[in-house]
């Protein structure tokens, strides 16, 4: 991540001063913050789905299975599309932005990485172990 982070709605993007341009900038800014929020909340949701669940999945643990499947679905349906919006809006911003400690871009990237790490490293891995155990034990 660079030291000068372009962000929609910041800096020199409003060069024309026309209302249409201002509207585009405002819309872009809203999409950007919405995508950051979705990334952060999805990370929290995926983490929540991991709480209290046993490492070993066993037959009959329907709720536990569902939580892991839901986490993967959230990753595919919410996190990755939100990251696409996040990336597009950030890349399409023309201006530069003075960054506070917790800038939205950092939250967005952290949300993405936490989501992916938990989805693969916890939910995916326990499902993988279960599949591998079933393969060993039943097939």
């Amino acid at each position: 991540m660079s030291s000068n982070v372009p962000i929609p709605g910041g800096g020199a993007t409003t060069t024309t001063g026309r209302s249409a341009a201002r509207s585009r900038v405002a819309t872009s800014s809203r999409w950007f913050y919405a995508s950051v929020a979705v990334l952060a909340l999805s990370a929290l949701l995926i983490a929540f789905l991991a709480l209290g669940e046993p490492w070993n999945l066993a037959p009959g643990m329907t709720a536990s299975f569902s939580r892991s499947i839901v986490a993967l679905v959230v990753t595919l349906v919410l996190v990755l599309p939100a990251f696409a919006v996040f990336r597009y809006e950030r890349q399409s911003a023309g201006g530069r932005w003075h960054e506070p400690a917790w800038r939205p871009s950092l939250i967005g990237w952290a949300g993405l990485l936490v989501s992916l790490a938990l989805a693969i490293g916890w939910h995916g891995l326990r499902l993988a172990f279960y599949i591998a155990r079933v393969w060993t034990g039943e097939l």
Partner: peptide
């Protein structure tokens, strides 16, 4: 006592790598 079949580590690796590659 809780027991599960032994997981095939190669299969686990394939699944996880597949998931990582997909992501």
């Amino acid at each position: 006592f809780e027991v599960t079949p032994r997981a095939n580590p190669a299969l686990v690796a394939v699944i996880v790598v597949g998931l990582m590659l997909l992501m």
